[in-house]
């Protein structure tokens, strides 16, 4: 594995309703976590609180990356939204479980199922 930095892009569209998808790829460590933090901050600034983070292209996450999810989740939920993680690879998911983040954050095998979960919550009875 080589260090390849990080690429963060935002996908919003009709297909996803109010849900924004943060697509992240690369290496999420102390030096790159700031880029994810900025992207997340920009979404919150635009009152977009329903967020799916697509981690399928992320090969490594240290505590600096996990800390961002914890740091922002309170504000997101207090505004009626949520942050759901999608597509974690095996090694990353193992750390997610070690930290017992599954009690805090929902995770899904892919972005489609994460977006669907938002839609199911939004559906009227």
């Amino acid at each position: 594995m080589t260090v390849d930095g990080i690429v963060v892009s935002v996908i919003s569209g009709k297909d996803h309703g109010e849900v924004s998808i943060l697509q992240v790829s690369g290496y999420l460590d102390t030096t790159t976590a700031g880029e994810l933090e900025n992207a997340l901050y920009n979404l919150l600034k635009r009152d977009q609180y329903k967020i799916v983070v697509d981690l399928s292209g992320v090969t490594y996450i240290s505590s600096a990356g996990w800390g961002i999810f914890i740091g922002e989740i309170k504000e997101i939920r207090s505004n009626g939204g949520d942050l759901k993680l999608a597509g974690m690879i095996g090694d990353v998911h193992e750390v997610f479980q070690l930290l017992e983040f599954h009690s805090i954050l929902e995770s899904y095998p892919d972005t489609k199922s994460a977006v669907t979960a938002f839609k199911q919550v939004s559906m009227p009875d």
Partner: peptide, 16 residues
């Protein structure tokens, strides 16, 4: 959730 601190994660991870 409201009582967790992001900064404590690193050493917890190493110990794990």
């Amino acid at each position: 959730l409201e009582k967790r601190k992001a900064g404590e994660l690193g050493i917890h991870l190493v110990k794990s």
